[in-house]
Every structure is written in C-alpha cells, then in structure tokens.
C-alpha cells in the first residue's frame, strides 16, 4: 500500500524538486554502527550538509560520514525521519520555527509519540547536535504537548523534577538513591 500523504495543513514547497538519482553514503554512529542514507536526507542536517559540501568542494569521494555524538539506535531514528522528509524545503521548517506556529503532520505525530520518552529525549538531543530544524520543531512540540492536561505533580513526574525537599543532598542519604 502506498504511504498516505498526510501533511495536509503543512505548507508545501511551491515547486517540487526534480527527482535526482539517489546518492547513498555510509554513516557511522558513535558506537560503531554503520548505516546507509541518501545524501538528500542527510542535507536536512546543517552539520552534515556542511561536511558533505566540504567533500564536494574538494572533489573528494565521500565514502563514510562519522557522527561522533549520536549512538546507533538514535541515528537510525534520525535517518528514518530524514528519509521521510528528504523532499522538504528546510526554509519551511525555519519559517515555522520563527512563527512559533508548528503543526505536526500525522506521520510525524505517530513516529514521535510512539517513542518512549527516553528515546524521544535522545532523538531531540541528536537533532540539536546535527542541527535538523524540522525534527527539533516536531520533537519539542511533541514534548510540550505531552504536558497538556497534566497537573503539576504529573508534570513533575513527566519531566523528572523532584520537589525541593525530595532532592537528595550531599549530606543526607536517601532511601534508595
């Protein structure tokens, strides 16, 4: 079954890019996992785009990109997201960010909300390391949405914020710290 087009409310690029043949490169995570990705997907990351441009400018063959601060599992999630959005115009994500008016398309909502909070945290942190504006937008919006309808106690649990008297001090042993 063809994937459902689900970004109805999200602004689309005015002129679709001509489909170029995929240029696949290897990407290595900090823990040594090697994954493969389309260069167009990697260009969503400003950090990786600069590295790729450096190779292209010097006409050096790009065989493997090393991502030193993201582990394999998280990098796989990042690449899955980038692959889905490789046709997107990064300027649109930047515009959404500037307007503080972020709408999460249903594919992204499903992708992000199914993740355990720990993985979502790693994904957002990786998005910051790799400077992927769209993923930062949707990730942070998802976290903010998770606080909706929650009491202060539930927010404290969600965001791991102890009450002042619960914080283990250096001088007092806690029950099970």
């Amino acid at each position: 079954m063809a994937p459902k087009k689900n970004s109805a409310k999200r602004p689309q690029p005015s002129t679709p890019k001509p489909s170029a043949p995929a240029r696949i490169v290897k990407v290595q995570s900090s823990d040594g996992h090697i994954l493969q990705a389309d260069v167009r997907a990697l260009l969503l990351s400003s950090t990786l785009a600069a590295t790729i441009k450096g190779y292209d400018d010097e006409n050096k063959p790009l065989e493997k990109l090393e991502v030193n601060n993201v582990v394999g599992f998280t990098l796989k999630l990042v690449l899955e997201w980038c692959e889905k959005h490789k046709e997107d115009d990064p300027a649109i994500a930047q515009a959404e960010k500037d307007k503080k008016n972020i709408f999460i398309p249903s594919w992204d909502r499903h992708f992000l909300t199914k993740l355990p909070m720990g993985n979502l945290f790693d994904l957002i942190t990786a998005a910051y390391h790799l400077d992927i504006t769209g993923l930062i937008n949707y990730g942070c919006k998802t976290v903010a949405n998770s606080a909706k309808g929650k009491s202060t106690e539930e927010m404290r649990e969600l965001f791991g914020i102890p009450e002042p008297w619960e914080q283990p001090s250096t001088s007092t042993a806690t029950w099970d710290d």
Binding site: G118, F121, G139, C140, K141, A144, E157, G160
Partner: peptide, 25 residues
C-alpha cells in the same frame, strides 16, 4: 506518586531545547 522519569529529565536537555519546549507550551 510515580517515580520520576529519569529518562527524560528536562534539565538534561540542551538549554535551547528547554526554551523551545517552553515556547511550544
């Protein structure tokens, strides 16, 4: 109360991400 979610401590997020999350609330 439930135990704190140590996997997603807001204080561990990059400060820009903390601000972004608050911006979206």
């Amino acid at each position: 109360a439930k135990f704190w979610n140590y996997q997603m401590k807001l204080s561990k997020y990059p400060s820009l991400a903390q601000n972004e999350i608050l911006d979206n609330m």
